[in-house]
Amino acid sequence: MILVRVIAAILEGVLVLALPPMLMSIVVKTKAWFAGRTGPPWFQPYYDLHKLLNKGAVYSRTTTWVFRAGPIVNLAALLTAATLVPVLSSHSVFGFAGDVILVAYLFALGRLFIVLAALDTGSSFEGMGASREVTFGTMSEPALFLSLIVLASATKSLQLSEMIGPQLFAARGAVGPALLLVVGALLIVLLTETCRVPVDDPATHLELTMIHEVMVLDHSGPDFAYITYGAALKFLLLGSILLHVAFPHPAQSPWIDVPLRVIELAGLAAVVGVIECSMARLRLNRVPLLLAGATVLAALAAVLALTGSVT
C-alpha cells in the first residue's frame, strides 16, 4: 500500500515537473488559433529547452558571480516552493503549519536574485526591467496576502495544502462570494507575477516596453534554460493555487483528481491565451491601478470573510 503511494507520488512529481512547458505551449497555441495561424508544434518549448541546455554561454565582462547565481537560485527557490504547493492532487510533498509564508517568501527570494542578476549586467535596459519588476512585485504583495488571509480564516489553517485542499471545499459555503473575489485577485496576481498581458507582453520585441524579458536579455545557454523553465514553473504553481481556490475539490480518489486538475490547468492556460489576444498591454502608469484593483478585491473578500457578513 505504501509502495503504491510512493510510486504515485513519484509519478505525480514527474508529471508536475514535465507540465510547465506544455502550459506555455497551450498559451502560444491559443494565441495562434485566434490569429488564424497553426502555431508552432506542441512540443516546441521542450525543443527550445533542449537546445538551450546544449549550448555554451556568453558572459559579459561586467558581470560577476551574482549574474550566474541568479537563474540557479531562482529555479531552486521555485522548486523548493513546488514541494509545498499542492499542484495536481490535494496533497503536497511536504507541509507544516505556516508553510504558506515560506512559499510566498521563496517566490520573493527568486525574484531578488533575478533582479540582482539583471542589475549585474550594468545595462540600462535591464536596470529598467528590474525596477519595474520590483515595483509591480511589491504592489501585488498585499493582494496575495489578503487572499491568503481569506483562505486562512475560512479553513482556520496556515498550511497551504489545507488552506486550498478539501478543507476549503468544506468551508466554501461559509465563505460564499468572498471566494469569487479572491479568485479575481489571484488571477491579477498571477498575470503580474508571471509577466503576462495586460501587465507585460512576453512576445513583444521592444525592449523598452518589456519587464521580465528585458531583465534576462543577457542570459544565454543553460542559464537561460533555467530562467525559461523557472518562469513556466512559476506559472504552474501560482496557477494551481488559483485553480484550487476557484474549484475546490472534495477529498477523492487521485484517479479522478489528477486528470481533472490537468484539464483545469490547460483551461487556465487557454484563458490566459485568450486574455492575451483580446486585450492590449496596459500603459505602465495604469498597471498600479490594476494592482490596486486586485488589492481592493482581496480586501473586500477579507472584510466579508472576517466580519462574517455572508450567511
Partner: peptide, 9 residues
C-alpha cells in the same frame, strides 16, 4: 449576496 458584492465592485 454575490449581486450585492458586485454592486460594490
Amino acid at each position: 449576496d454575490a449581486v450585492l458584492v458586485l454592486v460594490i465592485l
